[in-house]
Design a protein around this nucleic acid. Structure first.
Lengths: 353, 353
DNA sequence: CGGTGCTATGTTTACGTAAACACGCGGCGG
DNA sequence: CCGCCGCGTGTTTACGTAAACATAGCACCG
């Protein structure tokens, strides 16, 4: 007792809280040192006598001391936190990238905070600041289409350190992207190499930059080989949309090879083809993009373009941390290579068999 | 110029930083008010003259003011942040729950921070504190098997407000769980109702509490109907493991109905059955658990038990925030109901047809 | 017409930490 | 033997915010 000497028992209203968390000062008192020494121990700084250090550690343990990250952040001027902005966690890619980001960040001593967008909060009312508007992260990684970011009310405060994953950024931000073009080219060439005259494309939504790049590369690869690109079919990334598109493709008799812009749509496509009696791969070859864990269990197991999401996440973290440490803002684009995974959904076309 | 008057050009080392972010005091100066008034405006408190308020808002805008969340947290004593602990984001359920948590939290003005576990950081060295050991979140939601949590080096600091999702917690924590038992019972009864003699079970990994509960309920539902539970087959949640198990099940001639503990394993099972010439649903009925978005695109579309992950996430947030606001720690268990989604993978057994 | 109460605003202080600086003490070179 | 150096530790201060308290003006009522 006698510690809480001041704080004259006021009216009595609500001075609960306290007796909660021990502070450095408390630890210092118990250990018989100054709070600065506690700070040094807490941060692993050298120049503390081993014996003193042990005494401080013992005091910390006794009191259940936990450093207050708010005070630390306030004093240091940084937060050791990376914000991640993403519209949805419904797509495999976003999630895998997020997971890799969290892991890489943790290794660097950084935490990851999710910054949901487009939550219709009470605008100006409660303070005019969304969580993102607050000073609470040292850097931001954006996993979404940048143009959506623009149209969302969400605008990044100026001078914020940013890396954009899997999107375009009009040279405004640094970008880490999967090599969409290379992967698409590999897919098309693989099918042409099997003897198909041409390759149809089940594209992603028009608003998606990744989808656009895959489409453009598909077209380029075909033209480079002197083939005429068949009409485009669009989906929205979902298996259901792939199914609907597949029903239309199944009616094209000359369609013997389809490059789907992701695995989910490929799954729906497989179902549509199956329902229409078009065998895969005997009648139609199908190739996907992403290599989701289930792709090997499709009927038939799906040949697809493997994306290295973990590497993307890692480089995103490297990118923002470099900016944080060097103080500038980057712009360049980093491409992460893909790898074609051959399974059983592709084969030579019927004529050649 | 003239702003950085103090700070006598020391040795020259590194006094960059500054001229960075405007503080309340800066805004107050520009607006010609006290910083307390700025605070009131920033937090949307009443009792500020409209004209003054506008002047302050204008000053904020001019200076690009953003509240410093560290200072705010330090002063207020809370962080407006919920930590989420999870081993993996590889499973649909975890991710969907996480997404719902993030959304619900945002609506309440809380941010969500990912707390990765088992990162082999430099133990005691840099300070003996993992990010979780720091005081940085107001509450924690655990999305993982609690017994794994115990065995991981990670131990939750005492008195922390916790809600556990989808696991057991030995009455140590509050729990929000899907009604595993109810869903499993519905699945089994549906198959028995179609005329199947019994139902086989493709179980999840033995270490999983959710898997155990599904298995127990499957067994109970069979026994309640006077049927003999066939031997158990275990998978590890992955489609690949479902495939391997499926190859074994395909050899059981008397196996006409299988309840798979999740959709991914059901997918692998479908592939195995297909390869072995066992038609679904004509020869074998298959039912899954989760209702992942792709389930409707399987071959055939999968009948499955729908889990309401969004509701689970919502209740987790409600749970921790109630604890935060009321100051106590809860214990009870909340069950979120499931719903059987009928598609095309179940039918009466061959004999009855 | 003085007091009372309310509104709008200002002043003081403390939150927990860590950087900057100060200090004491023992050893060692000149 | 004096002064300087460096190690280990203590003291002071500032980070940006918001609670608590203080004050000034003004309306209203007895």
């Amino acid at each position: 007792m006698g510690a809480t000497d001041s704080a004259p028992a006021r009216g009595g209203a609500g001075s609960r809280r306290r007796t909660q968390n021990a502070s450095m000062a408390d630890v210092a008192r118990v250990a018989g040192v100054s709070s600065q020494t506690v700070s040094r121990v807490s941060n692993g700084f050298p120049g503390v006598n081993e014996e003193t250090r042990q005494r401080v550690l013992a005091a910390m343990k006794e009191l259940g001391y936990r450093p207050n990250s708010a005070a630390r952040a306030l004093k240091r001027g940084d937060f050791r936190t990376i914000g991640v902005i993403t519209f949805t966690l419904a797509t495999t890619g976003n999630v895998r990238t997020l997971e890799a980001i969290a892991t890489s960040a943790a290794e660097e001593g950084y935490a990851v905070t999710l910054l949901p967008v487009a939550v219709p909060t009470q605008d100006e009312v409660r303070g005019a600041f969304s969580r993102l508007g607050e000073l609470a992260v040292d850097a931001v990684i954006v996993i979404m289409e940048v143009h959506l970011l623009d149209s969302a009310r969400l605008s990044l405060p100026p001078h914020v350190k940013v890396v954009v994953a899997d999107s375009d950024a009009g040279d405004r931000y640094a970008v880490v992207d999967t090599d969409q073009a290379g992967g698409s080219r590999d897919a098309v060439r693989h099918l042409l190499g099997l003897g198909h005259d041409t390759v149809w494309h089940l594209a992603g939504p028009e608003g998606s930059y990744a989808a656009q790049r895959r489409t453009a590369a598909w077209q380029a690869a075909l033209e480079e080989a002197g083939r005429v690109p068949p009409p485009l079919v669009h989906g929205d990334w979902s298996a259901e949309s792939g199914y609907r598109a597949g029903l239309r493709l199944a009616e094209q008799d000359d369609c013997t090879a389809v490059f789907a812009a992701n695995d989910q749509m490929a799954l729906g496509l497989l179902r549509a083809l199956h329902e229409r009696g078009r065998r895969v791969p005997q009648d139609v070859s199908v190739i996907g993009f992403d290599d989701i864990p289930e792709a090997g269990s499709f009927l038939p197991p799906l040949t697809t373009v493997h994306q290295d999401f973990a590497e993307v996440g890692r480089r995103c973290v490297d990118g923002v941390l470099r900016q944080v440490r060097e103080g500038g803002t980057d712009r360049g684009t980093t491409l992460v290579p893909t790898r074609l995974v051959l399974r059983e959904s592709t084969a030579p076309p019927p004529e050649v068999r």
